[in-house]
Design a protein around this nucleic acid. Structure first.
Lengths: 346, 346
DNA sequence: TATATTTGCGTGTGCGAACACGAAACAAAA
DNA sequence: TTTTGTTTCGTGTTCGCACACGCAAATATA
């Protein structure tokens, strides 16, 4: 492995000069710089990153701004753990990760938490931009301070985020359509449950519905679908009543499609009010959802590897900060099919 | 981040002594060692791996022994690429990877290639142990030289491999059964194709068949299955004749299960001899197989993330060599469902 | 020509850990 | 008391790189 000193020797200069050339610092004559660059190219020399980070000995801080999870909403646990796991890999390079969490149903909490985040003076920020309008404010501040940011899970357009990491929601919906069709064959009567929890973040959910419908349209398969808008998921009793009424009104329904992470809520309500076996398809492998798979209450889940999303976001940001390596604009997570037989291996 | 010197200062000794304690070198009195250890534990101190590898300045070499891939058999391309990708991540720690490949249908080639491998004096070896008897010879040599080895993809029992990375073949078969059932509902008549290419490596394939059958037995679903033993996959014309005959003899067949990576071969033969739409389910996302998915010739593929297997094998071995971190005995790859709608995101 | 300023570049130190070398400290033998 | 051997540690150097510091030569200004 060739070193800076080897380059220096061959160029007839000192290591310091080579270093200046490498870092494009001035104080080097054009002629010398060219000579050094030629030799660098000749050997395809690259600085030893471990020695470099040792010498730099500088601390970079990455802050994350993700929704907090609780017993009801566990989805955001996985991305958080992904970021924490990634930290173990980047702390060798002097990168630390600090997590900030906000209430995903409260835009004010989003703003407030960002306030404490920015006070911690991070060098890069990973955001789940649940609220669009507020994200505009936030990113304006970040850009003024020249702090790079990337979006995770929610793909907002029109921002200067260095990257987006998440799923193609439309394709996920398409796949859900295929699986539903497979379960019900040519006799599809599906209840689509739109849990529109907040106005800004419903893009992914409506894309999932869009994709679902498109599957049947493209394949020219007839399907009858009922749409239910359900906002309050906490009142289980009212949920049951509502479900009961829908199933009574449309007894042909043999499948339920929940394009959010909350299918387990419906699975439990359903098994409480009816013994009829329906095909249930939902998203995200949360603990509760996985339990439903194992208990045969849910047929399929479509997952987006949220742990990996968190993990990758940190690695990406770290690479960006350390070597200014610009990531791809959009990094799509795999669209993973989970079912009883394979869920234990994920 | 706490350093060796911090520990030394607090213990009232020099950094050298702390270093001796850390590496369990002798020359330290019991009393001092205890004092130092207490402080190490108190701060949960761990040596800075990057500084360590700088100081050590030693090159570790990991050698891989994998089957070579060609146009017909592309499966082993992915693990190879995984190892090469992993190399980029471990070379920071002075680890290099050298790949050796053998003819998977020729045991002598396996032995011969191992000869050149061992001549390169590796510090650790990653093996796809396709041939059992020959693997016994090989590992005997490795053990004599005290070179650790791990198995990838093929799970041989009774060896001192530090780990196995691969799929649980039985569970994969089980999932294949479910998917087949889903495609054909309660009218399953399946042709199972046993491509028994060599005697040693058929364990995974028979497990996949075993799991497949078990699905129907456990669920008490009736299925009629025909088994075909096909050895020569190169003579396409004979293959077509054989398939034609089977389908003619058993016209009820509506699904084909290929528990190896070669389903594309059958898919193309099939579309040449019949226009009937059968459900085809196979394993592994090779380029040809994926093409079949996209062309709707194959319904599902079950993948084991072979790229990740290669990747992980290097990371694991590297960690083992650098920090003597013993890995888990068996590391199971995910059992991934690939279908037309999600295959592009993998 | 003398002095000030800029430009170009070499030197030295430190990052955290590993280890060779050798210096104390102490014990046992002469 | 001196010599020799052993145990226990501290010191100094090294790995490859980054950067502050400062010196000399080149150029500008008086």
């Amino acid at each position: 492995m060739i070193t800076i000193n080897d380059i220096a020797k061959e160029a007839g200069v000192s290591a310091g000069t080579v270093d200046r050339v490498l870092h494009k610092r001035d104080g080097v004559s054009k002629k010398t710089a060219e000579k050094v660059n030629a030799i660098i190219k000749k050997y395809n020399f690259k600085t030893n990153k471990i020695a470099s980070s040792l010498a730099l000995n500088k601390k970079l801080k990455i802050a994350t701004l993700l929704p907090q999870y609780d017993e009801e909403n566990t989805f955001w646990k996985a991305p958080l753990m992904g970021t924490q796991n990634a930290q173990e890999n980047v702390e060798k390079f002097g990168v630390t990760v600090e997590n900030f969490s906000f209430d995903q149903f409260d835009a004010a909490s989003y703003i407030n938490t960002f306030g404490t985040l920015i006070a911690s003076e991070p060098d890069g920020v990973v955001i789940a931009p649940i609220f669009k309008k507020e994200t505009t404010q936030i990113t304006k501040i970040l850009e003024k301070k020249n702090i790079p940011y990337l979006f995770i899970n929610v793909d907002l357009e029109g921002f200067n985020n260095i990257s987006f990491i998440g799923q193609n929601a439309f394709k996920g919906g398409l796949l859900a359509g295929k699986l539903m069709h497979l379960c019900l064959k040519d006799n599809c009567s599906v209840l689509i449950i739109h849990t529109r929890l907040n106005a800004d973040n419903h893009y992914a959910i409506s894309e999932r519905i869009h994709g679902f419908n498109d599957y049947f349209i493209n394949k020219n398969i007839s399907i009858s679908s009922t749409i239910a808008n359900i906002i309050d998921l906490r009142n289980t009793e009212r949920l049951k009543q509502k479900l009961k009424k829908i199933l009574k009104d449309t007894p042909s329904i043999n499948g339920i499609y929940v394009p959010s992470s909350r299918i387990s809520t419906f699975a439990y309500c359903l098994s409480a009010i009816s013994s009829k076996k329906l095909a249930l398809i939902g998203f995200d492998g949360t603990d509760q959802n996985i339990k439903c798979l194992e208990e045969d209450k849910v047929s399929f889940l479509i997952s987006q590897k949220p742990f990996d999303q968190g993990y990758k976001s940190i690695i990406l940001m770290s690479d960006y900060l350390i070597e200014k390596k610009a990531p791809e604009q959009k990094i799509f997570s795999p669209i993973e099919i989970l079912t009883k037989e394979n869920v234990n291996f994920n």
